[in-house]
Computed example of a mutant assay.
Amino acid sequence: MFSIEQAKQMAKQLRASLEERNQGLSHSTALELVAQQLGYKDWNTASAMLPPTATQPVSTVTFDRPIPILRMFDEAKAREFYLDFLGFSIEFEHRFEADLPLYLGISRNGLQLHLSEHHGDASPGSTVFVPMNNIELLRDELLAKRYGYGRPDIVQQGWGQVLEVYDPFGNRIRFCQS
């Protein structure tokens, strides 16, 4: 788990990195972005929830749940697929300026994804493996929507049931129930 101290250091590093690219960012905006990256609604929420200092010894490596970043090229198609078809909700939207690429955080029942129009954030054609329960319920929900670009079904594998969906940008989400 991150501490407030570590989050502030992350914001400082973000500002320095952007300043090297001639993209200024206020300290408060950097704190808000770091808070969102750590999964909090805003900096006030993060600062209330994070411990003041790191709680783990320096020699202990710990990890939080990863958040995959998927590349997208068309905001309208991304919203149609991820929000309307798959049923995700928006956690946050970020652009450095109105005419710059979108970075979008979405979630559904514990699954968080980030979608990015930024060139260097991810490669199209990625696969995300998602362990889950009630895969038949998800399949039935998706089929009932009669999405024009895909009607996924469950495939039985030796290690479990798999339901794959492909987004409009070549990325694949592989839902699996063992």
Rank of each mutant, 00 (worst) to 15 (best):
K12V: 11
G39A: 05
A78Q: 03
I106N: 01
T45E: 10
S116P: 12
G150Q: 10
P51D: 12
G105F: 02
L70W: 01
L104A: 04
R146D: 15
R139A: 11
Q56V: 14
Y82W: 08
I90W: 07
P51H: 11
E20G: 06
P66M: 06
H27Q: 06
T60I: 14
I4G: 06
T53H: 12
P152I: 07
N44D: 13
E136N: 07
Q6S: 05
H119Q: 09
A122E: 00
Q56F: 13
M132H: 07
D84T: 08
E91S: 11
F2Y: 13
D167W: 07
S123E: 15
S107Q: 02
L70C: 06
A48N: 09
R65L: 05
T60H: 15
H119K: 10
K8W: 09
R139K: 15
L102M: 15
G170N: 15
Q9P: 00
Y40D: 03
G148D: 12
I67V: 14
L113S: 01
G158K: 06
A30R: 04
D153R: 07
C176S: 10
L102F: 14
D74M: 04
R146S: 14
I67K: 00
F175K: 00
M10A: 10
N133Y: 06
R15V: 15
R151H: 14
Q56P: 09
C176V: 15
P168S: 08
T60S: 11
A122Q: 03
R79Q: 08
L104C: 03
T62Q: 05
S178L: 07
L25H: 03
V130N: 00
H114S: 07
F96Q: 03
L163E: 05
R174P: 04
L143V: 06
L115K: 01
F81R: 01
D121M: 01
L50I: 01
L100K: 12
S178H: 07
D84K: 09
N44E: 13
S107H: 06
E80I: 09
D140S: 08
E97C: 11
R15I: 15
G160A: 11
L50N: 03
L113Q: 05
L25M: 15
P152N: 07
E75P: 05
E20P: 01
Y82M: 09
L86E: 00
T55V: 00
Q177L: 02
P152F: 07
E93W: 01
I4D: 01
H119G: 10
E93K: 08
R151T: 13
F92H: 13
L18N: 05
A98K: 05
F2K: 12
E32G: 08
S123N: 12
L113H: 02
T55G: 11
E97G: 08
S123H: 14
Q177E: 12
Q36E: 11
I69C: 05
P68E: 02
W43H: 04
G158P: 01
P66R: 02
L143Q: 14
R21H: 15
E20S: 10
A144E: 13
A30S: 10
Y103H: 14
D140Q: 08
I90P: 00
R21I: 08
G148R: 14
S28K: 13
V58T: 13
D140I: 08
G160M: 07
V58K: 13
L14W: 04
F92C: 02
Q112R: 14
S178W: 14
D121K: 02
F92Y: 14
S26K: 15
G170Y: 09
W43C: 04
R139Y: 08
A98W: 04
Y40T: 04
S107P: 05
R65D: 03
